[in-house]
Design a protein around this nucleic acid. Structure first.
Length: 576
RNA sequence: GCCCCAGUAGCUCAACGGAUAGAGCAACGGCCUUCUAAGCCGUCGGUUGGGGGUUCGAGUCCCUCCUGGGGCGCCA
């Protein structure tokens, strides 16, 4: 699976902390060598990590452990010598060495305090990172066969895709969000045939549903609705024409209306709904066929036209592009569509979000890229493992054709949009997830999503009351923020940029959900330990200056938490 | 049979090849005359599916076996 092409990092104003630490460490190693403290040997990549325990510090590197063998020196001794040559860095409060040879850094308290003002001045873009340098990336997600309402499984698709898009946008990419409407082909035909049958049946006609048709109750409902709205008119015209009309009505008035509503409920907004049929109307299909033909990658066999994937890689199987019935298959559309994305529209990078049931397509998609003369690195296929559903203690197999579905809309209605987003986002794409619908409904109150939002509501409530009581926080001196709970909160706030970077580089927005919980927890501890507003009646509590400084801290924390919630596509409630 | 993904606490899941494997939920015991108790504190919980290997160091990489999910269509 692809990763974001890595940039040199660093926001417009400042280099990332980790970059500075890595460069400084290399510098220190070099100085140690020149001073004769360390043997001349090649310096490995300096990887800066966040230590597991906060006791170690804020950042660490294990590079001295890797140096030990060649340097023929105990790693801890190497670390001691390197640290002596470490240059002064404004955000570093202290450097220390720990067995077996780690170098640990702690952020400077004054620098941390200043970040409060920094956040308030910069606003929610404080945490932005610039990996993308404005490169144009298209993220295509959703894209379910438009033959029925979205089911729960596609919830994971849209939530993951939207999360990736959000995170890339925060990481300096110019992001286009797109939904591919698969409105050509066999499945769409079956859908139309089924809808025609249900429509006719609603009007008392005995028209059977086709063998491979869509058996869900929703088709019966839609047939009935169309019968109610349009009457018998489609029974009076040639059947082929009627099926075609119903296809359009079903697609636009039923399926897409439904899908749009679900996306709207989840707060997902696409830039473009791209229709497969336009690939055949606007020449992309013809174009890619001629390119592939020129490149000698099309072969005729058994009455069909095949893409010779085996030409570049003998391990691959050839793939039918145009079927023996003369109709292009889905792969033809995929080729034309990606030609449109990468060549005609010129996206630097294209990301498709697919369920694991499509994993077999990945090799041939990459073969297609080579076949079109495109760099395969410009296409990333993000696969997520399918969601399995448990309901009533039983595992349910989801199938649109069989009609055994838990609809996304139903889930949103019963569990709530924010809980759906958070839950579906909180697992790594590679992880199979079992969604217990009953449990999700029962436990909605205890879902961590509410904990996170509650922290935001609490901030808002606190700031409201501060305003009512006339505390502004103006002229605050952030240097008064010295309580461990305050400093810990700021530390966590500063981390958001790294979380965004990690999520963007790995196309793994699930990191946001964990960060959000940590931030909410740490804020709640601050709230417990640090009184912000003076008590109304009592004589104890915060001093006026403390109140001002803490109000600024709460404001800044709210900026960070709200940003995190928005990156996850969730609401930022002012009260709960 | 071949290919892809996974297997971590009772459950659902985290953990750039680094230090003592972490959360939430569940269970048990405490805490509201106070800026929101959708909260806080404490307890319980693990031979990271089994076995080999690579490495200074493995939940993470390699091999193998087991289990689960998904592929291997002129459907998408």
């Amino acid at each position: 699976m692809g990763r974001a092409p890595s940039g040199s990092g660093g926001g417009p104003a400042m280099l990332r902390i980790q970059t500075v630490l890595a460069l400084s460490t290399q510098e220190a190693i070099g100085k140690a060598q020149r001073a004769g403290d360390l043997a001349q040997l090649s310096i490995p990549d300096v990887v800066i990590e966040r230590p597991k325990s906060a006791d170690w510090g804020d950042y660490a590197t294990a590079v001295c452990l890797a140096l030990a063998r060649d340097a023929r020196l105990a790693p801890i001794e190497i670390a001691r010598r390197v640290v002596q040559h470490f240059p002064a860095v404004d955000f570093v409060g202290s450097v220390s060495v720990a067995p077996p040879g780690f170098i640990n850094w702690t952020l400077d308290t004054g620098w941390l305090q200043r970040q409060v003002d920094e956040v308030l001045q910069t606003g929610e873009h404080y945490a932005d990172v610039d990996l993308g340098h404005g490169r144009r990336v298209q993220v295509e997600y959703g894209s379910a066969n438009p033959t029925g309402p979205l089911h729960m499984g596609f919830g994971r698709n849209v939530v993951l895709g939207d999360g990736i898009a959000n995170v890339l946008a925060a990481a300096g990419y110019q992001v286009q969000r797109e939904y591919y409407v698969n409105d050509a082909g066999t499945q769409m035909g079956l859908f139309a045939q089924t809808l025609y049958a249900r429509y006719a049946q609603a009007l008392g006609e005995d028209v059977p549903v086709p063998d491979q048709g869509y058996m869900g109750q929703y088709m019966i409902d839609w047939g009935r609705e169309i019968a109610d709205q349009y009457g018998r008119q489609f029974l009076g015209i040639p059947r082929e024409e009627a099926v075609d009309r119903l296809k359009q009505i079903g697609l636009h008035e039923k399926v897409l209306t439904n899908v749009r509503a679900d996306c709207l409920a989840l707060g997902i907004h696409y830039h473009l709904w791209f229709h497969e049929t336009t690939l055949y109307q606007q020449g992309q299909f013809e174009k890619v066929m001629s390119i592939l033909k020129e490149n000698g990658l099309l072969v005729q066999r058994e009455g069909a036209t095949w893409f010779a994937a085996s030409h570049h890689d003998p391990a691959l199987k050839d793939e039918v592009v145009v079927r023996s019935n003369g109709l292009p298959g889905y792969f033809a559309s995929d080729i034309a569509y990606h030609y449109n994305k990468l060549v005609e529209r010129g996206f630097d990078w294209v990301i498709d979000v697919w369920g694991a049931d499509h994993q077999g397509h990945v090799p041939r998609m990459m073969a297609m890229m080579r076949g079109l003369g495109l760099d395969p690195a410009r296409l990333t296929l993000v696969l997520y493992q399918l969601v399995t559903i448990k309901q009533g203690g039983e595992d349910i197999r989801l199938s649109k054709r069989a009609g055994t579905l838990v609809y996304l809309s139903e889930l949103i209605r019963e569990v709530g949009a924010d809980a759906v987003r958070f839950t579906l986002l909180s697992r790594a794409a590679d992880s199979q997830m079992e969604f217990d619908v009953d449990l999700a409904k029962e436990q909605s109150d205890r879902n961590p999503v509410y904990y996170v939002q509650y922290a935001h509501a609490r901030m808002a409530s606190l700031l409201r009351e501060a305003e009512e009581r006339g505390f502004s926080g103006q002229d605050a001196n952030v240097q008064l923020l010295v309580h461990p709970a305050e400093i810990t909160l700021i530390r966590k706030m500063v981390e958001l940029g790294e979380v965004i970077e990690k999520a963007a580089v790995n196309l793994a927005p699930h990191h946001l959900t964990y960060y959000a919980q940590e931030l909410a927890t740490i804020f709640t501890l601050f709230y417990r330990d640090c009184r912000v507003l003076p008590r109304k009646t009592g004589e104890t509590g915060a001093s006026a200056q403390e109140t001002a400084a803490r109000l600024q801290l709460v404001r800044a924390a709210q900026v960070i938490l709200a940003r995190t919630l928005r990156l996850m596509g969730m609401g930022t409630p002012e009260s709960m």
